[in-house]
């Protein structure tokens, strides 16, 4: 499976050895989050609390099946909610 690079918001970095971005193998957001949980168990509470993902600038609020691919710019963000 292909590796994607995931940028973490800074409060998460402490749980990933201080790295600003980490690489995991995944084809979609769900796999990506599972791989992050498996590799860095400390991330699990924050991920379970809800995250949104920005892929090449497009913000994916909830979908786990959204594909991800190597070379994309991927950011984790705290789950978005509006008013």
């Amino acid at each position: 499976m292909a590796k994607v690079k995931v940028h973490l918001w800074s409060a998460l970095r402490a749980h990933a050895g201080g790295a600003e971005a980490v690489e995991v193998e995944a084809r979609n957001i769900g796999q990506m989050l599972d791989a992050l949980r498996a590799r860095y168990p400390g991330l699990a509470p924050a991920l379970d609390a809800g995250v949104s993902v920005s892929i090449d600038g497009r913000i994916i609020a909830a979908s786990l099946t959204e594909p991800v691919a190597p070379g994309q710019e991927i950011y984790l963000m705290q789950r978005l909610k509006g008013g």
């Binding site: 940028h7 918001w9 920005s54 090449d56 600038g57 497009r58 913000i59 710019e73 950011y75 963000m77």
Partner: peptide
Amino acid sequence: RASYGPTYP
């Protein structure tokens, strides 16, 4: 590059 990370479309 947005202040919150990603690049704007």
